[in-house]
Amino acid sequence: MTATRTRERGELFGPRFELFADMLIVGLATALAAAPVVTAPAALASACDLLRRRQLYAEPATAGRYAAALRARLRAPGGARRDLTAGVLLVAAVLLVAAYAALAGAGLPGAGLFAVALAAVAAAATVVGLRACALYGTPGPGPYGWGAAVRAAARRAAGDLPGSGLVVLALATAGACAWMLPPLLFLVPGPLALALTAVELRVEGSGR
């Protein structure tokens, strides 16, 4: 059941503003935790988990709680190995896409069609990966591990196209904000994690 709090008389900021502040704190903590790149999946998954618990149970989303959640995730049996493996696979996938994009830009025959197909595959994989981060470690048929989270995310991505479209829009918005104002790069993980969490809670609330 979602916990909510109404604004008291004379209170300057309501709970929505508190969510905004928590989102920025989580975003900054996530950006710092994801700086080594290979820790990015674990960092984003921890942010989504913290924001999910804030929405469902009204637990504060502070930098200290984020650090504790990330430590607990990495210290779980096999947790660090699984999370770092996911990070290495992420880096490998990005490099592979970059290599194929370079080939497409080299003017080879059929490069235009290949570039379109590559963009579609990369977009689909990105949506599945982001939705997996929002699912990893959350309650399900037992907590999702990365394998189960990716499979569940693939099913949801295909069965919930509006939600997948929202994920693409959230990622594009985050990227545009970071491109226009580079200092926002340290804050955009927060809004992105909030969007991913909201998309998954929307699916779960609809019973799909």
Rank of each mutant, 00 (worst) to 15 (best):
A117L: 15
A101S: 13
F114T: 11
F114E: 02
V94R: 09
L89E: 08
L118H: 11
A115M: 09
V88W: 00
L130Q: 06
L108P: 07
L96E: 01
A132N: 03
G112T: 13
L90C: 07
A99W: 11
A93L: 09
F114A: 15
L113Y: 01
L89R: 12
A102E: 14
A106K: 08
L96D: 11
A92I: 12
A115V: 07
A93M: 01
A117H: 04
A92D: 11
L135S: 05
A123K: 03
A122F: 02
V121G: 05
R131W: 05
L130S: 04
V116G: 02
A92K: 07
L103M: 13
G87Y: 05
A98Y: 08
L89A: 15
A124N: 08
L90P: 02
V128S: 10
G107D: 06
A132R: 07
V94Y: 05
Y100P: 01
A111N: 03
A132M: 12
V91R: 00
A120W: 07
L130T: 05
C133D: 01
V91H: 08
V127E: 07
L108C: 09
L96I: 01
Y136C: 13
L90W: 08
L89I: 04
G87K: 09
A123M: 13
A125H: 07
A124Q: 04
P109V: 15
V121K: 00
G105M: 07
V127K: 12
C133Y: 02
L108R: 05
L113Q: 04
Y100R: 08
V128Q: 05
L103H: 12
L103R: 09
A134C: 03
A119W: 13
A122P: 04
G129K: 00
V97N: 06
A98T: 15
L103T: 10
A122G: 09
G110K: 10
A104S: 14
A99G: 14
L96K: 05
V97D: 00
V94F: 11
L130A: 07
G105C: 10
C133E: 08
V94T: 11
V128W: 00
G105T: 03
A93E: 10
G110M: 12
G87M: 04
A120Y: 03
A119D: 12
A120H: 06
L103G: 14
A99V: 08
A106E: 06
A119V: 04
L135A: 03
A92P: 09
A106N: 10
A120F: 04
A93K: 00
P109W: 10
V128A: 02
G107F: 08
L89C: 11
G105V: 01
A106Y: 04
L90D: 00
A120S: 14
V97W: 06
A123D: 06
V97S: 02
A119T: 10
G129P: 05
A104G: 15
A101F: 00
A117K: 00
G107H: 08
L130H: 04
T126S: 15
G105N: 05
C133W: 09
A125D: 07
A123C: 14
G112W: 12
A111I: 10
L96N: 02
V116S: 01
Y100C: 14
G105P: 07
R131N: 04
A92C: 15
A122C: 01
